[in-house]
Amino acid sequence: MQVVVDMNKCQDHGQCVFAAPDVFSFDETGRLAYVADPDEALRADVEEAADVCPLQAIRIEG
């Protein structure tokens, strides 16, 4: 599973961080950081994160 976030769309709502804290987080500067190739066991969380992104900036490939 590959996760791609369109950082041009991302507006730091942070809903993905609530949905999948093992994959998405904010760094010290308040900018979104994420694991691009999370474990398959986290798929449900990542799908939830993609669903709740207000800008629909998260894409899951594979």
Partner: peptide, 11 residues
Amino acid sequence: QQAAAAAARYR
């Protein structure tokens, strides 16, 4: 953004 992040801490 800082204010919104502060709200999130109460979630």
